[in-house]
Design a protein around this nucleic acid. Sequence first.
DNA 1: CGGAATCCGGGGGGATACTG
DNA 2: CAGTATCCCCCCGGATTCCG
Lengths: 118, 118
Amino acid sequence: MDYADTKCEENLRALEDALYVLGGKWRLRILAAMFSGHKRFNDLQRTIHGISARVLSNELKQLELNGLLKREVHVDKTPVVTEYVYTEYARSIDNVIVTLADWGQKHKEKITTTCQNH
Amino acid sequence: MDYADTKCEENLRALEDALYVLGGKWRLRILAAMFSGHKRFNDLQRTIHGISARVLSNELKQLELNGLLKREVHVDKTPVVTEYVYTEYARSIDNVIVTLADWGQKHKEKITTTCQNH
DNA sequence: CGGAATCCGGGGGGATACTG
DNA sequence: CAGTATCCCCCCGGATTCCG
């Protein structure tokens, strides 16, 4: 195994590490919704089409365990307000989402023009 | 709905478009393996730990339908050799994978140092 | 080697109802 | 609103077998 192979293996492992945290159907969508300003449970559920309350609840717990968001209960307000806010660390995922969204944008354009051309 | 909201909605939709093609458990892993030089069916299955033959087969078909790879059967060789090669268009995904792998790398470092600190 | 076909089991997740 | 609990169905995908 030469240097190039080693480098590739490292990349594959790094990709695994990322997907372990960000993979799955909902993780990135939830983070993207939060980056878009949505913070409350029902608000998130309404924004992320198709997700059920139970799944959203579980995913939020996982994201919290991974240090990507923090659950904040404001008892001082009436009625009590629960907010999910992303951590400073979660901002490092911005790049990932933007890169992915950019690709999606370009891909959609490509599909559209391809369909027009025949 | 003001400009910022519209922009956010666009980003969410673009993310959906990307995840429609690249989402799921295996898509990015398969593409990453291909970028690493793996081209043949059993080679890919060996590289991508945990994937079964049927799932790999199905995923490859989907990736081909989306124009990300091409199935090439070289009848001129003996025995016949089947290769899966990514298209020129698939190179646009390089960014996504690199960004994700970078984040995974950083994340692993963070986890490691965090564990050492307490 | 590169797959397709069939069988089959578990568990992920939807629906609904309920609670604080 | 912000979830939890229970039920239960469906289908994803593993294992196995077979084929060119």
